[in-house]
């Protein structure tokens, strides 16, 4: 690395777009050609790549420590590792009677609404910045609408795609989420329920969380508790604790 770094901001932008998959196929080809033929550009790119990767890795290392703090693990005397599930099951069983009692004693409907409002924030959606394959273009176009909270427009596009792939977990998940974001819990349940047992799905945990919220909104917290028991994310645990308070 020499002392001088003669990289222009335009060159840096090109490199960023390339690294983040924001170039069109044609631009990408041009960029790769330039790397092959222009040695000084290649040199600048290698330096840029090193800096960018260093920044990303540094940020990820900090994140990993944050993730670590969220892990609920208990160690027994013999060094055996156990998950908190058994404790949670106990907590649920011990509190179930209280929950049902509280449900009738207090203003259950009002409480459900409050819990829903407190815990519901729409799923932020998927990144739409990477290069898009042609078959995914419509999906991501709708994702942009979703992220801008244009849920109805997103739904129109996704429902067309769903007709071609009715079992697709991603589509069912986001269609459910769009309905829930519009306040229509009943409609959301129709879609989320289809994928609740799909344990291979990337959205498995989140499906349980949002489906539980939909049931809470519909005034069925018992159903929500059952769902939350089979979900081990932090969000699910927090919501479960709130329900069994």
């Amino acid at each position: 690395m020499s002392q001088e770094w003669n990289i222009s901001s335009d060159e840096m932008k090109q490199m960023e777009d390339f690294r983040m998959g924001r170039l069109s196929e044609e631009e990408r080809k041009k960029f790769l050609e330039k790397l092959e033929t222009d040695l000084s550009f290649k040199e600048k790119f290698e330096e840029f790549k090193f800096l960018m990767e260093g920044i990303e890795e540094s940020a990820l290392r900090e994140k990993l420590n944050e993730f670590h703090e969220d892990i609920h693990i208990k160690k027994t005397g013999g060094g055996k590792v156990i998950n908190k599930i058994s404790f949670r099951v106990f907590l649920i069983a011990a509190s179930l009677v209280l929950v049902i009692g509280a449900y009738f004693l207090f203003f259950a409907a009002d409480r459900n609404e409050k819990i829903f409002d407190k815990y519901f924030t729409p799923d932020p959606g998927l990144a739409t910045t990477m290069g898009r394959a042609a078959d995914n273009y419509e999906f991501y176009e709708a994702m942009v609408k979703y992220k801008r909270k244009n849920y109805k427009e997103a739904l129109e596009k996704w429902e067309i795609l769903l007709a071609k792939a009715p079992e697709n977990d991603t589509l069912n998940y986001f269609i459910g989420l769009a309905h829930l974001s519009l306040g229509d819990a009943k409609e959301a349940v129709l879609y989320l329920d289809k994928i609740r047992n799909d344990s291979d799905s990337y959205f498995y945990e989140d499906t349980h969380y949002y489906l539980a919220l939909a049931y809470i909104k519909m005034g069925e917290p018992k159903e929500a508790i059952i769902l939350l028991q089979s979900c081990d994310s932090k969000k699910c645990n927090e919501l479960l604790k709130e329900l069994v308070k």
Partner: peptide, 10 residues
């Protein structure tokens, strides 16, 4: 993402 929406790349 699975099924039609290219799982590997996703």
């Amino acid at each position: 993402m699975r099924k039609n929406l290219n799982p590997d790349l996703f």
